[in-house]
Design a protein around this nucleic acid. Structure first.
Lengths: 109, 109
DNA sequence: GAGGGATATGCCGGAAAAGTAATACAGTAA
DNA sequence: TTACTGTATTACTTTTCCGGCATATCCCTC
C-alpha cells in the first residue's frame, strides 16, 4: 500500500479528482483520445473560447494528465496517462449502478 | 460501450468526480471503509462540525456513494459502492506516475 | 405532551474556480 | 524590421462551494 490516508494525502487525491471534475476538461481529454492535437484544433472541436481551452489544458498539464510539444507556432497536446479513461469507465459503471439502484428503490424491490 | 460522450454525459461524469473532489468527503468515505457509522461517530472521528459532516454525507448519499439506515435517534451510513476505493487507488497510482514523471523531467532523462 | 439528544436544513460570508475580453509573448513570413 | 498567427497570461466578473451558525425536524424517554 503506497499511501496512508492522512489529511495531506487526501488533499492530493481530491485535487486530482478536482482536475477531472469539469465537463470541459473531460471533453478535451476525450478529444485527445484520438491522438495529439493543437490548441486551435481543440478550440474548433469544442467550440469554447481560446483562453478557456488554453487554461484548462494548462491545468491538465500541470497535473500530469497531458503532455505538450511545440512545433512552430502550434502547441500539440497529447494524453500523458491513459489511466484517465479507466477512471472514466469506472465512473460510468458507478453511474449505471446508481441508476439501477434508484430504479430498484422506486420499485420497492 | 454504455455511454457516448456527449455534453450531457460529460456533465454526469464530471459531477461524479466533483463529489470525490473534496478531502472531507474522501475522509468520510475512508472512515466508512471500516464499516457503517453514525453521524456522531463520524463527527467525532473527523473533528469537523456536525452540520458540515451531515451536508457532506447528504451529498454522498444523493450521488449514490453511501446508503443510510435510521435506527432510533441515530442514522447509520455505509459505503454503497466499494468501487470508490478502486477509483482512489487508480488516482494514487496516477499521483505516483506524475511524481515519477516530474522526477524524470528534472533529471532531463 | 414535554424535554432533550441526534440529524438535517437554511442562511450568510468568504474563498476558489470558471468564462470572457484584452493583452502579452513567441514564432513565422515577407 | 514589420506584420501576422497561435498560444499563454492577466484582470475582471460571475458563479459555485465550503464552513459555521442558528434553527428546524425527528425520535426517544419520561
Amino acid at each position: 500500500m503506497p499511501f496512508d490516508f492522512n489529511r495531506e494525502t487526501l488533499k492530493l487525491i481530491s485535487d486530482r479528482f478536482k482536475t477531472l471534475a469539469e465537463p470541459m476538461r473531460l471533453e478535451l481529454l476525450h478529444a485527445l483520445k484520438a491522438g495529439e492535437k493543437t490548441v486551435s484544433e481543440l478550440v474548433e472541436e469544442t467550440g469554447a473560447g481560446q483562453a478557456n481551452v488554453s487554461k484548462h489544458l494548462g491545468l491538465l498539464h500541470r497535473h500530469g494528465w497531458v503532455e505538450r510539444r511545440k512545433k512552430g507556432l502550434n502547441v500539440y497536446y497529447r494524453i500523458c496517462d491513459p489511466m484517465v479513461f479507466q477512471l472514466c469507465e469506472l465512473v460510468c459503471a458507478s453511474i449505471d449502478a446508481e441508476v439501477e439502484s434508484r430504479r430498484r428503490t422506486l420499485r420497492r424491490v
